[in-house]
Each structure stands twice: as C-alpha cells, then as structure tokens.
C-alpha cells in the first residue's frame, strides 16, 4: 500500500515514543548499576540519567571485593546465586526438553499420550501458588529443599508444557517422507528418531531449549519457596539484598538485576522468530 508522508511521520513518531518508553526503565537500571553510592539516592536537580562518575564498584561489591563506601558485609557473594541460577535453569531445561521432545515425537508420529496436550496446558492454567504447598512438602520429604537439583526438577516439570508443545508443532510440520525413506531402508524407529529426525531438528531444538531456558532462568516464586540459604537463585538473592544501614542497595541490586536480565534478553532476541509459536503453544506461527 502506498503510504502518505503524513502517515510515515506519524509512524516514526509513534515508534520513537514506544522505543523511548521501552528503553527508559532498562536504561535507568543500567545507569544505576554504574553509579557510586553517593549518587544512588540523588533526587530533584541532582538526578542524572548518566552517572556523573561511573564506576564498577557495584559489580565489585557483588563479588566480594568491597568498594569504597559500602560498609556492609554480604553474607555471600553473587557467585553462588549465579551458579545456582545457571545450574537449575540448565538442568531444568534438560529435563523439560528430554521428556517433552520424546513425548512430542511419540504423539506426533505414533499418537501415544493423547491426554498429554490437555494435561500439560492445564498445568499452566493454575497459579503456581495454589500447588506450592504440596510441592514444598514433597521436596522436603525427598531432601530436595534448598538444592539446585531440586529446583531443576520442579523447573523441568513446570516448563514441560512449553517444551512439549513447541516440539510437537515442529514435529508436525516436519515432512514424514524423510523418516519414511529411512524406514524403508531398514532402520528401526528408534534409530530413525535418534539418527535422522533429531539431527534434522537441531535448529528447532535449540530454539525450544533457549525458550525454556529463559523461562526457567526467570523464575522467582518457586525459588523463593524452595530455597532458603544455600542455593538461592539470582532473583531471590537480589530481593534479599538490603541493609539497615544504607537502606536499599540500589546500585548493587541494579547491577545484579543487569546480570540477571541480560542473558534472557539476548537469547530472546536471538530466537525471536519462534517466540510466537512458543508463547501460544503452537497455535500460531510467525
């Protein structure tokens, strides 16, 4: 369609406003992460969007090398929470992707597990809070409380629906001819799955895995309930950072928030092609 110049101006103006609104909160946090303590609470005329004296102190503080003005002692550095997030999110993704991909293939090609689609959607329907008490009790019973592998297990279960639905639509879209050709040549179905199908699916698998990873990494509530000290993840740790002496540790928390937020944003932009499919359980493709 030919667009009039008036429309073009309007379009760019609207998009610029949207971009500004999108970036302001993020930029503020980035800015705060590099601000020294003195600038944390600056208000009114002193409020700056770019730090007057940018510093890496906040990051150093998080990792135990205390900077200048922070006289607070942390009971731990950010290292372990980062490790906890990494481990629980990765292994959780592994669990969800393994069970989900296998089941998706089983349903797509053999029609097994017809109950799974509905059952898995229902899993996402209900507020997590409504099922956390039994989970807490079970996890305590199994000795999984406050462990990264306990978290990984629940993450794997909770994101299983996404892994399943994503892979199912990918399998459904994949033409069967190639597998049939391999079958005709005498491969067993299992070999077809592992030697033919999965390698062909490398890209969708990667995209689905990244999508699930983002979800696992972003969790707060479940980690809040299932970890207490040892294996808190980044969001939980970030929320707990506070000091009665210096009030809210804006800069340090902003720095930690940055560390937590950057990986999913980058990964998300990388897999943006598949986001619609993942978020609508395959009902829509981009």
């Amino acid at each position: 369609m030919n667009r009039s110049p008036v429309f073009e101006v309007f379009r760019y103006a609207a998009i610029l406003i949207a971009l500004a609104i999108t970036l302001v909160p993020i930029l503020w946090m980035v800015s705060m992460a590099f601000k020294p303590v003195a600038e944390w609470q600056a208000t009114g005329a002193a409020l700056t969007w770019v730090p007057r004296t940018p510093t890496l102190d906040n990051f150093r503080f998080l990792f135990g090398q205390s900077g200048s003005d922070l006289i607070v002692a942390l009971d731990r550095t950010a290292g372990k929470p980062i490790l906890s997030s990494l481990l629980s999110a990765s292994v959780g993704t592994l669990i969800a992707m393994s069970a989900g991909t296998a089941a998706a293939y089983g349903l797509s090609r053999f029609g097994s597990g017809a109950n799974l689609p509905l059952a898995l959607i229902q899993l996402r329907l209900f507020p997590p809070m409504a099922v956390m008490i039994p989970v807490m009790i079970m996890w305590a019973f199994l000795g999984l409380m406050d462990t990264w592998w306990g978290l990984a297990l629940i993450y794997g279960i909770v994101t299983l629906p996404f892994a399943f639905w994503l892979m199912k639509t990918f399998f459904d879209d994949m033409p069967k001819e190639i597998e049939e050709a391999a079958l005709v040549e005498g491969c067993s179905r299992w070999r077809v799955f592992t030697r033919v199908t999965l390698p062909m699916m490398a890209a969708p698998l990667a995209a689905a895995a990244l999508f699930v990873f983002i979800l696992n990494w972003s969790d707060y509530l479940i980690a809040l309930l299932l970890t207490t000290r040892e294996w808190v993840t980044i969001p939980v740790y970030m929320a707990s950072l506070s000091s009665s002496m210096t009030g809210q540790l804006y800069g340090a928390k902003a720095a930690l928030g940055l560390i937590a937020a950057v990986p999913p944003v980058i990964l998300g932009v990388m897999i943006q092609k598949h986001l619609v499919r993942g978020l609508t359980f395959g009902a829509l493709k981009q």
Partner: peptide, 20 residues
C-alpha cells in the same frame, strides 16, 4: 528492542519499576 520488556526477568522488572 520493542520485544525486550517481555524477556526481562519479571523479578528484575519489579525492581526496575521499584526504582523508577
């Protein structure tokens, strides 16, 4: 850029807006 907000960890977004 416009799709970034939905990929920000919700807890971190909470803190961003707390500061804002």
């Amino acid at each position: 850029v416009l799709i970034m907000p939905m990929m920000v960890v919700p807890a971190v977004a909470g803190y961003m807006f707390f500061m804002l």
